[in-house]
Write a protein that binds this DNA or RNA. Structure first.
Lengths: 134, 134
DNA sequence: CCAACTGTATTACTGTTATAATACAGTAGG
DNA sequence: CCTACTGTATTATAACAGTAATACAGTTGG
C-alpha cells in the first residue's frame, strides 16, 4: 500500500493517512476481510509515531470501514456495495460542488468547465496508465 | 459585503475570510480603488478579533490584491484583467483537478461527471437567481 | 492640538498535533 | 506456558497555529 504524507500541507498526518486509506477502500482496491499492514509496520514505513497511525485507523473504524482486532490485526470491514457506491458519489459530489460554485461565481460558462474536465481526465488517466507500467 | 464563517470547518477563520474576499475581487464584484470595510468593522460583524481580520487582509496584500494604508483604510488594488482571468482559471482548475482525480480513482466514467456537473450548475445558478431577488 | 477613526505589533493564552516512553491487553504458535 | 507478535491506553513533552487583549502608530478633520 503506497501512502504519501506531506508534512507541509497543513493537514494533520493522521487525517492524511485516514483519507488515503478511506479512498482505497471505497475504490475497492482493498478487498473485504483483507488484512492491513500493522500499526507499527506502517508507522515504520512512514517514519511516524505508532500512535499517530492508530489514531488514523480509529477514524476509519468509527466510520465502519475497518475492524480492529487486538492481538490479531486490522481488517477491511464488509462494506455493502450500495454504501460504497453512495460513499463514492457523495465524496465526488462534495468536491465537484466546490468547483461548480467557483465557476458560477466567476461567471465561467458550463461549456468551459466541461472542456477543462475533459482535459483533466486525459491527464489523470494517462498518469495512471504510466504508473501501472512501473 | 456578505461573509460567512464556519467555526466547525477546521479551516482557520483568517483563511476563510481571505478566501471569500479573494474570490469577490477576482470575480470583479469589488472595483479597483474601492475601499473595503475596516478591520474593526468587519471584526465586529463577524464577532471575531480584529487581528484575525488583519491577518486575512495581510494574505491578500501579499498577493497584490489590495493595499493597506495605516490610518486610512483598505483599498482594492489595480488587478490587470489578464492576471485576474488567470487567477480565476487557476483557482477553478485546482479544485476541478481534485474532483477528476477522485473520479478516476473511483472508476467513475467521465460521462457521469459531466452529468453531475450539469445538475450542480442548475442547482447553483438557481440559488444565485434566488439570492439576487432578496 | 486633539478626538476619532484607521491599521499593526506584541504578548499571552489555548487547543491541537505529534512524539516518546512505558505499560497494558489480547492472540497465535512453538 | 511463554515468546512474539498484534492493538491500546496513559502520561509527559514539545512545537505550533489560531485567537484574543492590549497598547501602539499613522491619518484625517474639526
Amino acid at each position: 500500500m503506497l501512502l504519501q504524507i506531506d508534512h507541509h500541507s497543513g493537514q494533520p498526518i493522521y487525517r492524511q493517512v485516514a483519507e488515503q486509506i478511506r479512498r482505497q477502500i471505497l475504490a475497492g482496491h482493498l478487498a473485504e476481510g483483507e488484512q492491513l499492514v500493522s500499526v507499527r509496520e506502517l508507522a515504520g514505513q512512514l517514519k511516524v509515531n505508532p500512535m499517530t497511525i492508530s489514531k488514523a485507523y480509529g477514524l476509519l473504524e468509527a466510520e465502519g470501514l475497518l475492524e480492529r482486532r487486538r492481538g490479531v490485526g486490522l481488517f477491511i470491514a464488509r462494506v455493502r456495495p450500495d454504501r460504497r457506491s453512495a460513499g463514492k458519489s457523495q465524496l465526488l459530489e462534495q468536491i465537484l460542488a466546490k468547483a461548480v460554485a467557483a465557476a458560477v461565481q466567476f461567471d465561467i460558462p458550463e461549456t468551459e468547465v466541461h472542456a477543462l474536465t475533459e482535459r483533466l481526465f486525459e491527464r489523470y488517466s494517462s498518469r495512471i496508465r504510466r504508473d501501472e507500467h512501473e
